[in-house]
Design a protein around this nucleic acid. Structure first.
Lengths: 187, 187
DNA sequence: TCCCTAGGTTAACGATCATTAACCTGGGTG
DNA sequence: CACCCAGGTTAATGATCGTTAACCTAGGGA
């Protein structure tokens, strides 16, 4: 069976993720992005209506994936403690596997067009609330805003991943971050 | 005694911090920044050589302050456990008091001119190493890169502060974040 | 065979911006 | 009093960039 060759749309999306992560959405010109894909400049408009749409597709799809898989893992978990651990593991797994996307997501989401921006914010909020909800089942003494803030802080910890230097192996980083996040959520 | 009225330079710096935090360095034009200060456009060049210099002064000075005070608190602490706690407390105190600066620091430092960028990176590295060093004294089993990654993750947690909604009081947020960070570092 | 269309190309346009030029003004100093 | 200059002003400049226009080409279906 043949290796699935990526469509040009996909190539543009992954290339854009790397470039945006490295220099920011506004720091990458359409011409650069095209060149990095082997085509040049305006050819991008055969695949996307404009530059913001590239960013939008990228961020909306990963927000959706994070939420969908997160929900599935919670549903499959045996109780809130397991659910919290499952969510942490899922997020660190995703973050390690898609470092550029994580960087772009929390640096450049303000550059989105209004509609997509609201959509991403809503998805992210649901994702944070997913963790916050499980956390409150585990620790009923937490008020809702407190649990939300704690969940957000845990994701902040996990999202520091991509900036890490390569002096430590992915496997070690994975267990380190997961155990730190779980400990923080238990505090 | 009269209230210390800020010099125009200072006004520009604090205004720029708020605007950059809200819309990103590239998202704020020189004209907008001037207007927000009550002057207009090119008048900024009477106080700074160019737009990047505003960002540079902002980021270098806060990096220096973080490091200097961090060192002082470590020196004043009674043992590594107290030093870790002091560093966490100092960072959360600073982050809560200077939310826009924290946002700008980890979103826009790549927009700095090369020299300033290197300077900020060096200061930040020393700051992270300060925490990592105390952590290794506390937990000698940690390898140096591991401790560094753990320290970075803890700062990632603490820097999630500014994005938090206002549904929770600063006082509560302060103790929540501090205890989460300390717990994560102990894990 | 003929034509349509998907997916390229280069050239041109218009907006936005950072930066510079040229000019003004009022208050403190020699 | 005369002058200087710090700190403004508006207008102009040049670069960059996103986007559009106009055009080309290969390949597959009627």
């Amino acid at each position: 069976m043949t290796v699935a060759e990526p469509t040009r749309r996909e190539q543009i999306l992954t290339t854009a993720a790397e470039l945006f992560a490295a220099r920011g959405f506004h720091g990458v010109s359409v011409a650069e992005l095209g060149a990095a894909c082997g085509i040049s400049g305006p050819a991008l408009y055969k695949h996307f209506p404009n530059k913001q749409a590239v960013l939008a597709e990228m961020l909306v799809s990963i927000s959706e994936e994070l939420l969908a898989v997160g929900r599935a893992r919670v549903a499959a978990a045996d109780g809130p403690a397991a659910a919290v651990r499952a969510l942490v593991d899922w997020h660190v797994e995703f973050a390690l596997g898609h470092r550029p996307l994580i960087i772009v997501q929390d640096r450049d989401w303000e550059s989105l067009p209004d509609e997509a921006s609201a959509q991403v914010r809503a998805l992210q909020r649901k994702y944070v609330d997913l963790l916050a909800g499980q956390l409150r089942m585990l620790r009923p003494e937490l008020a809702k805003p407190t649990a939300h803030a704690a969940a957000q802080a845990a994701f902040g910890l996990l999202n520091s991943t991509p900036r890490a230097g390569h002096a430590i192996s992915d496997a070690e980083l994975r267990t380190l971050l997961a155990s730190m996040a779980v400990a923080a959520l238990r505090a």
